[in-house]
C-alpha cells in the first residue's frame, strides 16, 4: 500500500482499450484527472488478468474522490465522485 488517506493522486491517462482486447475497471471519464485518496480497501486480484483466466497478482484498491467540477465542465464543485481504483492506475501528481 503506497498511498494514505488524503494523498493527492492522478489517474493514468492510458487507453489500453485502443491497443487490443482488454478488461479494465478504471472508467474512461477519470483518466488523467486529479483526485484524492479517501480510504484503502484491501488488496484484490487484478481483474485485468482474472477476465482472461490468467494468474492474477493482488493489487491495493482505494476509494478515490474527485470533485465533480474536475471531471465535467458543468459539474458542481461541492459534489463528488467516489470510485474504487487499483493502485497500478494511480500516480503522484
Amino acid at each position: 500500500m503506497t498511498y494514505a488517506p488524503g494523498d493527492p493522486v492522478v489517474v493514468k491517462n492510458d487507453w489500453p482499450e485502443t491497443r487490443g482486447p482488454v478488461h479494465i475497471r478504471t472508467p474512461h471519464y477519470l483518466r488523467g484527472h486529479k483526485g484524492q485518496i479517501l480510504r484503502y480497501l484491501g488488496d484484490h486480484p487484478n481483474p485485468e488478468d482474472l477476465a482472461f483466466a490468467r494468474p492474477a497478482a493482488k493489487h491495493p484498491l482505494y476509494h478515490v474522490t474527485f470533485p465533480m467540477n474536475e471531471l465535467w465542465p458543468e459539474g458542481r464543485a461541492n459534489d463528488e465522485l467516489v470510485v474504487e481504483l487499483y493502485e497500478h492506475w494511480l500516480e503522484r501528481p
Partner: peptide, 19 residues
C-alpha cells in the same frame, strides 16, 4: 451542455458509459 466533442469517444469502450 452535453457535447460529444467532450467525450473521449474515440478511445473509450462502448460499455464504459459514465457521463
Amino acid at each position: 451542455r452535453y457535447s460529444p466533442a467532450m467525450d473521449n469517444d474515440d478511445k473509450r469502450s462502448h460499455h464504459d458509459m459514465g457521463g
